[in-house]
């Protein structure tokens, strides 16, 4: 995945059973963002792989004041890349459950 300067990782072990996963997002390289992030924390949130889109979460983070609206695309892309990897792993490791 492209280095967006924003890191997204699983916040809990993924057993492939739940459609909702916990993710943690933090800024590794603020210079890659157009706006200034609110603070230097890791933001933990849940994401429904079946019902939600990375754009939904990115929009809510912006509305909650964590990021400037000009960084919507980079936040959404960072989440999308991680979600794609999680789904790829699920299909590979637990194909029967899919």
């Amino acid at each position: 995945a492209e280095d967006t300067g924003v890191r997204v990782e699983l916040a809990e072990e993924d057993h492939g059973r739940k459609s909702t996963i916990a993710l943690r997002l933090w800024v590794e390289d603020p210079k890659k963002l157009k706006g200034k992030p609110k603070d230097n924390g890791a933001i933990e949130f849940t994401f429904d792989l079946e019902k939600e889109t990375p754009e939904d979460v990115a929009q809510e983070m912006i509305e909650s004041g964590f990021f400037h609206e000009s960084d919507m695309k980079i936040i959404a892309k960072s989440i999308r890349d991680r979600v794609a990897l999680i789904q790829w792993r699920r299909e590979r490791i637990w194909p029967v459950l899919q």
Binding site: W26, D29, N40, A42, E44, F45, E63, F66
Partner: peptide, 27 residues
């Protein structure tokens, strides 16, 4: 506690915690 919780109007919870130094990229 150093955790901060922000609830968006759509209901999603964001829990903010400090990033360990080891996870931050050195510039």
């Amino acid at each position: 506690s150093s955790l901060t919780q922000v609830v968006h109007s759509a209901g999603r919870r964001f829990i903010v915690s400090p990033v360990p130094e080891s996870r931050l990229r050195e510039s």
